[in-house]
Nucleic acid binder design. Structure first.
Lengths: 126, 126, 126, 126
DNA sequence: GTGGTCTAGACCACG
DNA sequence: GTGGTCTAGACCACT
């Protein structure tokens, strides 16, 4: 798992970390029980404060994606593949829904939106 | 043009106002030269600080969507329909692009994404 | 609302604060929309770090008991009286359940437990 | 005596062990002089560190519930049945007292609390 | 003024 | 070693 943070981004650093770890878990790159880097090691690695990495891990723990144990470290939480797939889908559905609604509000008709979608899908795939 | 702001939203109030005015212009609801509510009247109407509405209008002016003249008020800026259509499209393209990339990162394959897209388009249309 | 914290307690300070604010809300002492002391003012008042009061407020916000807005402050969240009563009851049910189960595990029979309960109820009421 | 520990619990493992041994003694399941599993055997059995089981036994020894002799092992300490009964009762009284006080602070009246108590007693008994 | 983020240290409990 | 709590500052965005 490679984590990259940008201090110039408007997005909080802890949020950037959280999102990237979440992605690695949801995509299946990380598996149940896999150890995560310690908050201190990660902080050192990313050159950010320990509190920042801790905050990211706290958020992940609240969402039941990881578990942390004093004296042992942090690990990918138990989960069923089905649950993971649901979470993945939910995440994208919500984002996609917002874009579609916004396009409607802007007066973009359905066929134009579908055209844009097709073109972008190809671009990303290439 | 109806503007609604939520103080409980995590989005800054001035950003909420800015987005809704921008939408009304890009969608064609407002036309070139149409007068906008005065900064003070809008602030009173929305029960927010004058500073907040001022900030929203300043942002809109910087993006050349509106023009403000002391003593006269604010108006929808001149623009060609073509330019407007481009702006609309760019806005959506960028958002849609981000969602598609995110779905790839999560390991959602293209056919599943297209399925989600179809379903959501119907939902929104209904 | 009077908040008292003990630095010598084993309970984290932020948890002590959180519990006392929660109590004031659940008991009806504080009402919907009532302003809470700012995290800075409370920190100064209790002579603890701003981060400590912030953490307490964050927890309360996550449990939808309060809402915080940048530039405005923190307030008791909207809630129905019914919901509040449910939360109160839930809180006590859970604690009481644990005690009753523990007493069973220790081999205390039901009549003895009921006797203890009666006596303690009187004590507390007096 | 069956001991079960959960690494995901927020309660320290040594505390979990201590509580369960204590329970077995206070409930009368274990008698004066009964041998306890050795620190090492228990550690192996529970798959925890020897340091952890040692800490649990040390706590129990400090509370005079067990005695340890180098080279011989650990045993349930001498005690009168009367003393045991008192300890049991004190333990529960204290916990129950806290719950009753908390319910008062939340504004739950005595009759509601008694109703909750009755219902829960039945649930646990079933 | 407010809350939100972040830093660079510290001490503690757990294993 | 680990994570959990806490401090005493800082800067920023919002109102």
């Amino acid at each position: 798992m490679n984590i990259i943070v940008s201090t110039s981004s408007k997005e909080p650093i802890y949020e950037q970390i959280k999102l990237q770890v979440q992605r690695s878990i949801l995509s299946g790159e990380l598996h149940e029980g896999d150890p995560l880097p310690s908050i201190r090691a990660l902080a050192k690695d990313l050159r950010v404060s320990v509190i920042t990495t801790k905050k990211a891990y706290e958020k992940l723990e609240r969402e039941k994606l990881i578990t942390s144990h004093v004296g042992k470290g942090s690990f990918v939480a138990e989960h069923s593949d089905k649950l993971l797939a649901e979470k993945r889908r939910h995440l994208i559905e919500r984002q996609l829904y917002d874009v579609i609604r916004e396009s409607r509000k802007l007066g973009i008709n359905e066929s134009e939106l579908q055209e844009i979608f097709k073109i972008l899908c190809q671009e990303v795939t290439e």
